[in-house]
Simulated assay, not measured.
Amino acid sequence: MGNLKNVALPLLLAFSLLYLPFAEGDWFINYHIHVTNDLSLLNSSAGKPNLFLYCKSKNKDLGDRAMVKGQDYTWDTKINFLWTTLFFCNARWEGHKNITFDAFKAKRDEQRCLQYHHSCMWSVREDGIYFNKNNATWYNSYRW
């Protein structure tokens, strides 16, 4: 019986340390991804879509969206057990440019998006795709 306690305690401790990162419910946190069309109305008319965004992951196809200036494309996701959750988008600026970018990558975005209400904010602009983690400073993360 004494040997069982000697084995059980280290196993319990090891499991606790392994589980510690999830103690606050990281697996259950919803991350909110926002992609906003901030392109100018150059060569397009007001009210007519000038950005086409197609987003998906390995397991979930979010479909294609035609977006007018100022429109926001939003979805939620959770991080999977292996931290391999990845959503990527193809952005096509009608008549101009096309780019594919990672809109949510678990290992990259877990902490940086957690800081601002679990949100990852993206802005599609004339010179690229900008990221914002605190609703104050934007970074051009993907150039056209």
Rank of each mutant, 00 (worst) to 15 (best):
W122S: 01
A136F: 11
N6E: 15
D26M: 04
T74D: 12
H96A: 09
F87Q: 03
R112Q: 09
C120R: 01
W93A: 05
L86Y: 04
D76M: 08
D102F: 08
A14M: 12
W144T: 02
M67F: 02
Y116R: 14
T77C: 10
S45G: 10
G2A: 14
N3Q: 11
L4A: 13
D127H: 13
L86C: 09
L11I: 11
R65D: 10
A8W: 05
A46V: 12
F104N: 02
V7G: 04
A91C: 03
W27H: 15
D64R: 15
W27Q: 08
W83V: 05
C120P: 06
N140F: 01
N135V: 01
A91L: 03
K97S: 15
L41T: 12
L17M: 07
S45D: 10
N50H: 09
T77A: 02
S16Q: 09
M121E: 11
F28I: 06
Y139F: 11
E126W: 03
Y19L: 15
Y139W: 10
S45I: 04
A91F: 08
I129H: 00
A136W: 09
P49V: 01
H32L: 08
H117W: 07
F81A: 11
G2E: 15
L42I: 14
W93G: 03
M1N: 09
S16T: 09
W122E: 00
L20E: 02
T77M: 05
N6M: 14
N132Q: 05
N37K: 04
W138R: 07
K48S: 13
T100Q: 12
L13G: 12
